[in-house]
Amino acid sequence: MTAVKFQLEPLTCPSCIKKIEGALKKTDGVEEAKVLFNSGKVKAVYDADRVAPEELKTIIERLGYTVVA
């Protein structure tokens, strides 16, 4: 398993956490997804043979959030 962290633009509400975590957890190959509301960070643990970090970034951006790092 591999881990990746993304920094998002400031999150505005706690429901953002559920939305992002839910979408990532539904993705084939993602074992764990955790959003830290106060810091705006997302950590995902995934199988690099099944999904790429670029795909995870795209999922987050399609939800309407900006990944800054």
Results as ranks from 00 to 15, higher is better:
K25F: 03
Y65C: 01
L8V: 00
E61N: 07
K34I: 13
V51K: 08
L8P: 01
Q7H: 09
A33F: 07
Y65Q: 05
T12F: 06
V51A: 09
A69N: 13
V68T: 15
T2P: 00
E54C: 01
G29D: 11
V67A: 06
F37K: 06
E21V: 01
T58H: 09
V51M: 06
T12A: 13
V30H: 12
I20G: 01
I17F: 08
L56A: 09
E54W: 00
S15D: 13
L24V: 09
C16L: 07
T2L: 06
F6V: 00
Y65F: 15
I17P: 03
I60C: 00
L11C: 10
K19Y: 02
A52I: 06
A33D: 08
L24E: 05
L24P: 10
P53G: 00
E31S: 14
P10D: 05
A52W: 00
A23W: 03
G22K: 11
E31C: 01
K57C: 04
I17Y: 07
K41E: 15
V67H: 11
K34C: 05
L11S: 04
N38S: 15
Y65S: 01
C13L: 05
I60T: 02
K43L: 14
E61A: 07
D49W: 03
Y65L: 04
G22A: 04
L11F: 06
G64Y: 08
G29S: 04
F6S: 00
K25Q: 14
K43W: 05
G40N: 06
E61R: 08
A44P: 07
N38K: 12
L56H: 09
E31H: 11
A23N: 13
E21T: 06
L11N: 04
L8F: 07
F37C: 08
K18N: 13
K25V: 12
